[in-house]
Write a protein that binds this DNA or RNA. Structure first.
Lengths: 107, 107
DNA sequence: CACGTAGTACGATAAAAGTCGTACATAGGG
DNA sequence: CCCTATGTACGACTTTTATCGTACTACGTG
């Protein structure tokens, strides 16, 4: 089955550890990635799904930061732009990193 | 053998993942931690040891950020303030994170 | 076609972070 | 005592990041 082309993103070997750390150092983006990992492994989600109480322009900004750091992959489905975590790529490059995100205890 | 008291630092269970990510998202601080891990596991080092071409005030700032995030522990030895990575604490809280720092390939 | 929706680029603003010079405190040695 | 060295707090400046409103584009539906 053909998927739409992903939006521009770094190649696997271009993903920089400090860029990934920077992307995940914001609490909102950390929560986005955690939610993607824990609650939606099988399929993508558009921006609206996350239920964050933020203007769309703010969420657009954060999704772009995650994509440009190489943490997420985004594809356009008609009106919707869906994201999921580049789990295989990140596990190849930084094994265990995503486990830290899912197991970190929140207040 | 008595060591000097560490400078103020967060308790193990107060260390926040996003604070650690933020501390390690700066290339200079990432390099400081990597160097501490790879080249000096057995003993502490003062600021001068790292050989960074930066003013002392800049290095003081970065060492403080690392300590306040809970990544490093600093102790005062006479004139010198020596740092090492809180390896046991970080491995307990975020297993595998420090491995990512040491194995990350640099340009 | 019109309309509603998703999502964006742009720009403005505010906040945060990084850089570094300066003057200072402290420690240690002679 | 003086001198040197380590390292800092403070403040100023620059850069980066976060927030969000606005106007817009593109898509899907009727």
């Amino acid at each position: 089955m053909d998927l739409p082309e992903p939006l521009p993103e770094p190649a696997v070997d271009e993903i920089r550890l400090e860029h990934v750390f920077a992307a995940l150092s914001d609490p909102l983006r950390l929560e986005i990635v955690r939610k993607l990992l824990l609650e939606s492994e099988a399929f993508d989600h558009s921006c609206g799904w996350f239920g964050f109480d933020r203007p769309k322009s703010t969420l657009t900004h954060h999704f772009k930061v995650l994509r440009e750091a190489g943490v997420t992959r985004q594809r356009q489905y008609g009106l919707e732009r869906r994201s999921h975590v580049r789990t295989d790529d990140l596990n190849a490059r930084f094994p265990g990193l995503l486990d830290l995100v899912t197991t970190d205890k929140r207040r």
